[in-house]
Amino acid sequence: MKKIFALLFFCFVLISCKNDDDNIDCCSQPIVTDVTFTFSHNWEDTEVTENDFNTMQYINANGEVLTIARIRYLLSRFELVNTNGESFPLTGYKLIDLSNPESFTFNTTISDGTLYPGLYTLKFVYGFNEEDNIDGAYPDLNSASWNWPAMLGGGYHFLQFDGMYNVDTTSSPFNYHNGTARISDGNYEQNFVSFEFFPEVEINYNTTIEIKMDISEFFKNPITWDLNQYNTPLMPNYDAQKMMQQNVGSVFSIGQITQE
């Protein structure tokens, strides 16, 4: 009888220790507690760094020659979804500033649930969603002058992208700033974008995922952006804000994934 009980107990342990999602024995595999993201930036196939600001010239899809003076953007609501559809949120949000390479690394932890090595779908939000975009709620973003004007809906910027266009002829400034879209006085529309990347990425112990930004996509997909028409000010311009929302959809992609 004792042998039967021992055998049943051993089988129970094996079954309970099995991760059905990825067919991994959790008794022998480490639990994933954190994931690191790095951010890289390019114009099509050319890397863009702060050393290129105000000097390197780029040609957008509409034919305007431009230079870049500043790019800052906010990403939030990072999460991993396993093949069973279970979601594992990651902590925090990240403001990336191309003039500050230290901001190109984002260390997150698993905020809810037990994550085991396997294949996961990566999701995140460009900007803040309606629940998170609370006016004045984040001291670090307040000190970074990242606030979106209250008269335009409040909350925070999603993107600040500044530079000069037509630099080969009569140079003029542009301010490609994105956030909540103002329809009319007191009437606003959320303008964030939710990203979901396929195929799944392999998550293991000490995984680093590169998020790539192709800056040229802001001006060409699906809308060919005419800087001669939409340059500055764009923050109170509802049509411009909604066009930005559409063009952001192709800006980000997953790059290199490394495991330690």
Rank of each mutant, 00 (worst) to 15 (best):
L95M: 14
I96P: 08
I96N: 05
I96S: 10
L98K: 07
L98Q: 04
L98E: 13
L98W: 10
L98V: 06
S99W: 05
S99R: 15
S99Q: 14
P101R: 12
P101Q: 14
P101L: 10
P101W: 06
E102Q: 13
E102C: 04
S103H: 03
S103A: 09
S103G: 08
T105D: 09
F106S: 10
N107G: 05
T108V: 04
T108Q: 01
T108I: 02
T109K: 14
I110S: 02
S111K: 13
D112I: 06
D112R: 13
D112Y: 14
D112T: 12
D112G: 03
G113H: 08
G113K: 11
G113A: 05
L115W: 08
L115S: 05
L115K: 11
Y116K: 06
Y116C: 07
P117R: 11
L119C: 01
L119R: 06
Y120M: 13
L122Y: 02
L122F: 13
K123L: 09
F124N: 03
F124Q: 01
Y126E: 08
Y126K: 07
Y126S: 08
G127P: 02
F128W: 00
F128Y: 01
F128A: 00
N129P: 04
E131D: 15
E131H: 09
E131P: 00
E131K: 14
D132C: 02
D132E: 15
N133L: 02
I134Y: 05
I134G: 00
I134P: 02
D135C: 03
G136R: 13
G136T: 10
G136A: 11
G136W: 08
Y138G: 03
Y138S: 09
Y138D: 11
Y138V: 10
L141D: 00
N142M: 09
S143V: 08
S143A: 15
A144E: 15
A144K: 02
S145E: 14
S145R: 12
N147V: 09
W148Y: 03
W148T: 00
W148L: 00
P149Q: 13
P149V: 09
P149K: 09
A150M: 11
A150Y: 10
M151F: 12
M151W: 12
G154Q: 04
G154N: 10
G154M: 03
G154P: 01
G155A: 05
G155Q: 00
G155P: 00
Y156I: 03
Y156N: 00
H157Y: 14
F158A: 12
F158L: 01
L159C: 09
L159E: 05
L159H: 03
L159I: 06
Q160M: 10
Q160A: 08
F161G: 02
D162P: 03
D162A: 06
G163K: 12
M164I: 07
M164G: 03
Y165M: 04
N166Y: 05
N166R: 13
V167C: 08
V167G: 04
D168G: 08
D168S: 13
D168P: 00
T169E: 14
T169R: 05
T169D: 13
T169V: 07
T169M: 07
S171M: 11
S171E: 15
P173C: 07
F174Q: 01
N175G: 09
